[in-house]
Computed example of a mutant assay.
Amino acid sequence: MTGEFVAFFVLSVFAIGGAVFMINFTKVVHMVISMAATMLSVAGIFFLLNAEFVAVVQVLIYSGAVTILMLFGIMLTRHTGEETPTRRPLHRGLSFVAVAVLFAFLMWGINTTPFPGEAADVSTFTVENIGLTVFKQFVIPFELLSVLLLVALVGAIILAKKEAE
């Protein structure tokens, strides 16, 4: 048992646990925090796979920006304190059985599928090449996307202020 295996096991347990907690929590803030824990765990798994760029992007974009954006959305909207608890033990049991069957089917498919053994040439996929591609070939869509996100953020703030008044 190597340290890499232990780190992978711990990170995967945190990722799965955060996802399960996100589904089961009732308060939105708790859901966002558990989602951030899941995203950070996935970034750790990317680090273990020697995909440092993807891991850093995962932390910056998903764990940082998306989580903060969701928290802003929560803070800018009104919430009522009324919650009606639903109790469906049969529904939970059937859901658990369906998930177990799906998991078994996916594991069977993964174990019986012959994957090709050839490795890709990773020397051409560097961070420098990604940056050159984004900022030379796709600079106009990149800038249009940033303007679109800025307009959406300003529009959300204006709509939230109108509701408050």
Rank of each mutant, 00 (worst) to 15 (best):
F5R: 11
I68S: 07
L60R: 04
V6Y: 09
T38C: 03
N111I: 11
E163C: 03
G109M: 15
L48W: 07
V101K: 05
L148W: 06
L76P: 02
G93Y: 12
K161L: 11
L148Y: 07
K136A: 10
T84G: 13
V20D: 01
R88A: 15
H30A: 04
G93S: 12
I140C: 03
T84W: 14
D121R: 08
V151W: 05
G44I: 01
L94F: 09
P141W: 05
K27F: 06
V66H: 02
F96L: 14
R87M: 15
F47Y: 10
E82P: 12
W108D: 11
F46Q: 01
G131L: 12
Q58A: 05
L94H: 04
A100L: 13
T67P: 00
G64C: 03
G73C: 04
E4A: 12
E83W: 15
F47C: 06
S146F: 14
S34K: 00
V134R: 08
I33C: 04
F47K: 05
T38E: 00
R92S: 15
N24Q: 10
A51W: 01
F47H: 07
G44S: 02
F5M: 10
S146P: 04
A65C: 08
E118H: 15
H30E: 06
T2D: 14
V122Q: 07
L90V: 12
A98G: 10
K161T: 08
K27R: 11
N50S: 11
V99W: 13
N111P: 07
E83Y: 15
S41F: 01
L94C: 07
V32H: 00
A19F: 01
H91S: 14
M70P: 03
L150E: 02
L60W: 05
K27N: 08
V99G: 13
F8A: 13
N129M: 00
N24G: 06
V154R: 01
L149E: 05
E52C: 10
E165H: 14
V154M: 05
A98H: 06
M75A: 13
L48N: 10
P85L: 12
I33D: 00
G3P: 03
V10S: 02
L11N: 03
F96P: 06
I45T: 06
G93Q: 11
F135L: 12
T38Q: 02
V54Q: 02
E163R: 09
I33F: 06
T113H: 15
R87T: 15
L148T: 09
A164G: 11
S12K: 01
V122P: 00
P85N: 11
R92M: 15
M75R: 09
L106T: 12
M107L: 15
